[in-house]
Write a protein that binds this DNA or RNA. Structure first.
Lengths: 285, 285
DNA sequence: ACGCAGCGATACCGTACGGGTATGGAAAGA
DNA sequence: TCTTTCCATACCCGTACGGTATCGCTGCGT
């Protein structure tokens, strides 16, 4: 079996994405002829035609589509490998945890305290990011992340459930639904819901939001409403109210980390978070 | 960020596994000096030392251990990408399903019939393999596999549960436990259990077995006993009996396929298998 | 119908880098 | 101290990757 080189995959994905050798070559910062040759070579070595060269149109074959998808995972894995290795080699070891501001269900302080008490605990570096948090994990830029199920795609990650919460509708006190004791999703059919960065049009309309303060502000301005886990209750402004949504499926806060991770520091962190979570659910009911 | 090439990863994993440049070079079929240089280059580009060169001893650094693990996943993904692309490009499209002989829970005929009735169904190629079945999936050599949870490691695979079965102890009719109406795992402490190929010493002792006929034969010869899903009852020889094991955790037959697979043929197969499975559980209770 | 423009393939060339051989040099064992 | 072992350095060569120039095909515009 002939070897499949990363450089070739970079070339191929560029062409497969542009469907145009010239533009792909420009994107790669190289001339078009060597790119053509590299693709031909790749096709010869695999014994498979990847691109249908209609004279003015380049199209992916079935096999090409497969290689595009598979190749992306290889490139992702390769980039992640490089970054994780570099992070592991740094002189100042730290645990990078990525969170959504306000999305920690109130557990984070206790988790951090518990973790720091563990033997061999590393300094924790918090990275706040509103969208695309799981991408940071997959890219090897972070060691762990707080995510929400089923909101995030958790394939390829190991996870530990921390906290399951019902969801609340957050609206201005002057909203037509503000005095309801409960609502259901049908009531929101016409409401502008936020689009979360990185989530491609989940039936949501309205502008993209990038942080919690901005979101609450927009809600207060009657530009939108939002359905959020019940733990944001603590962080609401005075001019907003929260109403339980009966038929919104509960959201689970999960701690996620890359599959097959072996770092003892991460293992200790998972232990700490789990311990805090079970204590919290014991108390909270 | 500098690019991380597959060739470099092959070189590094060889050295990391051998912990010896000379042997690694021999394994790679090359001379030692260029290998040394390649590793140094890799270290420079990552800005990380991967190997501790004690004068007569080569050892992995922390970062090196990380790169060894991550690099293996890259190499696996790369090999899988190549094979899946080649399979997708073949002139005669087929769906490769890997099974364990006798391990289909009796569902397979119905699943195959149902699938062939689907529009756009491909010919199904059955591959029988006793051990290492999930590896075939991960290597891109098969499209789907029948596996058992919790026996197999399903990380990195998508799965659909088909059938949950209790487990039976299979023994010769002359065995000391043959007239028991039930046993528990403690009763088996001294019994020779088979070692499954690919499973590294799961507390099992006794010889490796590679197919079901051989296994049953060895049981009949009083060389071993085995705990198996209850659906093998149909395939028992006259000189063997099966006794329920009270505290053996139930086994679930799952259909597994590579994460993120998009092939419509595979999707149809999953549909067919799921349909047959729910029908079977409805009937069987 | 003819010509032009767009785009991928081919031809040809230079160089950078991957790989080989020979050798150095440090350290452990006899 | 001499030898052995094993990784690094020095130096050389060939390949193959990338660049420039050009061809050839085809669809479109007038």
């Amino acid at each position: 079996m002939e070897r499949l080189e990363v450089r070739e995959l970079v070339y191929f994905t560029a062409v497969a994405e542009e469907l145009h050798f010239g533009r792909a070559a420009a994107r790669l910062g190289m001339a078009q002829p060597p790119l053509s040759r590299a693709i031909q070579q790749l096709e010869r070595r695999l014994g498979v035609t990847l691109l249908e060269r209609g004279n003015r149109r380049v199209a992916l074959t079935e096999a090409g589509a497969v290689l595009l998808r598979e190749g992306r995972t290889v490139l992702d894995a390769s980039a992640a490998a490089a970054r994780r290795t570099q992070r592991a080699g740094r002189a100042d070891p730290r645990l990078v945890l990525v969170i959504k501001p306000g999305g920690d269900g109130g557990l984070l302080p206790a988790v951090l305290d518990t973790y720091q008490a563990e033997p061999g605990a590393l300094p924790v570096e918090l990275v706040c990011s509103f969208g695309e948090r799981e991408v940071l994990l997959r890219e090897g830029r972070a060691d762990a992340a707080l995510l929400h199920r089923p909101h995030h795609d958790l394939t390829g990650l190991d996870t530990q459930d921390l906290l399951t919460e019902t969801q609340l509708l957050v609206i201005p006190s002057s909203h037509r639904l503000a005095d309801r004791s409960r609502v259901c999703l049908n009531d929101l059919d016409e409401e502008p819901l936020p689009r979360w960065p990185g989530v491609p049009e989940g039936g949501s309309r309205g502008p993209e939001v990038h942080d919690l303060g901005q979101l609450l502000h927009l809600i207060a301005l009657r530009r939108m409403v939002a359905v959020l886990p019940s733990s944001i209750r603590d962080q609401l402004r005075d001019d907003l109210v929260a109403v339980p949504v009966d038929d919104a499926e509960p959201t689970t806060l999960v701690l996620a980390w890359p599959e097959h991770a072996t770092s003892p520091a991460l293992a200790a962190f998972v232990r700490a978070a789990t311990a805090v979570a079970v204590k919290a659910t014991d108390h909270g009911g």
